[in-house]
Computed example of a mutant assay.
Amino acid sequence: MSGSTPRVLLTGFEPFDGESVNPSWQAAEAVAAAPPAGLDVTAVRLPCVFGESLTALRAAVAETRPGLVVCLGQAGGRPGVTVERVAINVDDARIPDNAGAQPIDVPVVPGGPAAYFSTLPVKRCVAAMRKAGVPTALSNTAGTFVCNHVAYGLAHLLATELPDARGGFVHVPWAPDQVPDGSAPSLPVETVAQGVRALLLAAVPAREDLRVTEGATH
């Protein structure tokens, strides 16, 4: 990474689907306000809109010139923070985005590869968060909504224009106030932020991943 202090761009999303908050943005803000020692972290909120989210991401990358980009998104129902291994080249929206768009079977990047693997050391990131006491797992699907749209768009940007930078996507669970009746899993935003800090400290210096089992049978 260029410069004496590694630059990290951390993004989260605005609320969507009728929610009043989005814990991905809350966690990104918290990490930027109290970043890990030795890292220069900038947080940027992305619109939950196909196309516009990638325009905003590209502008943030151009402005901050980071060596590492980590995009966060909400995955309601998941019990822990999940590091995404792969992003696929398709938008297939079960619900409309915040601008009312609902693309079906549309490529994120026409003519782009079918998928990209994250350039984060994903298993090392999972291990670091677990060591920090944060529930976490490796995920093999980022869905087909705006989160995957951004995950794929980021990967394509890095692969085609920014070969010296690395990045990937991480999903976070609902915050407790989003499920006050306890009917679904949730994590406090500060717990998520603690995990993200551990992830960044693991990801910034490491290009080699751990060779450990994190696979799934289904």
Rank of each mutant, 00 (worst) to 15 (best):
T64E: 15
R94F: 03
P79V: 10
T82N: 10
D97G: 07
G77D: 09
V69Q: 06
L72F: 04
P66I: 06
A60F: 03
T55W: 00
A93G: 05
V61Q: 05
V106D: 07
A101F: 01
V83G: 04
A62T: 09
D105M: 11
G67R: 06
R58P: 00
D91H: 01
A101D: 14
A99V: 04
D92Q: 03
I95L: 15
Q102P: 05
D91E: 08
A60V: 01
Q102I: 06
D105C: 10
R94N: 04
R78W: 13
L57A: 04
I104D: 15
V61E: 10
C71R: 06
V106S: 09
I88C: 11
R78S: 11
V83M: 03
P103R: 01
I95N: 12
N89I: 09
R78C: 01
L72A: 04
E63Y: 00
C71V: 13
T64Y: 04
L57S: 03
V83Q: 04
D92W: 04
V61P: 00
V86D: 05
C71P: 05
G73R: 06
D105Y: 05
I104F: 14
R85F: 11
E84F: 11
D105Q: 13
G73M: 07
V69K: 03
V108A: 08
A56P: 00
V81Y: 10
V108Q: 08
E63R: 13
T82E: 14
V90C: 12
R65Y: 00
V83E: 01
V86I: 14
A93W: 04
V83H: 02
P107I: 13
A59I: 00
I88W: 11
A87P: 03
D97L: 08
V83L: 05
A99P: 03
A75Y: 09
A56E: 11
L57F: 03
G76T: 03
G67I: 10
R58G: 09
N98C: 11
D92N: 14
R65W: 06
P66L: 05
P107E: 12
L68I: 10
P103Q: 03
Q102F: 09
N98R: 07
I88T: 14
V90E: 11
R65P: 00
L68E: 12
R58M: 03
